[in-house]
Amino acid sequence: MAHPRNIVRVSKVTKTFQLGKVEVRALQGVDLEIASGDYISIMGPSGSGKSTLFNMIGGLDKPTSGRVFIDEVDIAQLDAYELAWLRCRKIGYIFQTFNIIQVMTALENVTLPMIFAGMNNDAAVAKGIQLLELVGLGDRFRHKPSELSGGQQQRVAVARALANDPAIVLADEPTGNLDLTTGEEIIELLKELSQERGVTVISATHDFKMLNVSDQVVWIRDGRIEKIENREELSISVGQIGVRE
């Protein structure tokens, strides 16, 4: 692709929550364009609206005003079926708490989205094993989540996110519950996958390790985009952050 198209486009999005009698304005007019195949990190302190923006992009939440386009489709216009379809085929989710379904084995977790997508069982199992091998868990697909370490569970989650060859992988603090080395391994894995498969990876994080691999970093503060930096500009500002904090 000579001219990378925008896989996600966020236009003038605001979001207001009603917390008791107080109105919380989580997002106050956000504009953002994300090119297909990029590795994006959304950074910001907690309470900055980072998670809210993230949920919007994932089609998990609808904006109060403004529009969110995924692949040039306005998600506010979609009905329940189309949203489910979008979550199933277009977007892969990775969570801070892994959210592996506890009663299923690693393989069953990975095949579930493929079953939802209408793939037959044998094909899903074959692809599931292949994906688990890809994330380095080829010998552990019969294990229950309780028999896997945190890092291994997150690997299962990565494999599951890739099950239906999504265009976007959304990772919400993927390293938040992992130790330093394991976190780095997961980041490395995500980066590799993004490069090899051309998947757009969008991650919300406060993990500075994520910055080095990001093509673009979006800084959010008080419900607005503070700045968007490309990788070339990064090393300097990371230094500044280190000084500032």
């Binding site: 379809w85 277009k90 079953i115 939802f116 997508a117 209408g118 265009a167």
Partner: peptide
């Protein structure tokens, strides 16, 4: 992945059945 368009409401006919989300009864 470009061929994966979100199915429009109008095309929810027989040709797009495989594009909808399913959970076979046996699997349930």
């Amino acid at each position: 992945m470009k061929d994966k368009q979100i199915p429009a409401r109008a095309t929810k006919g027989s040709d797009s059945v495989d594009r909808l989300v399913v959970l076979p009864f046996k699997k349930s």
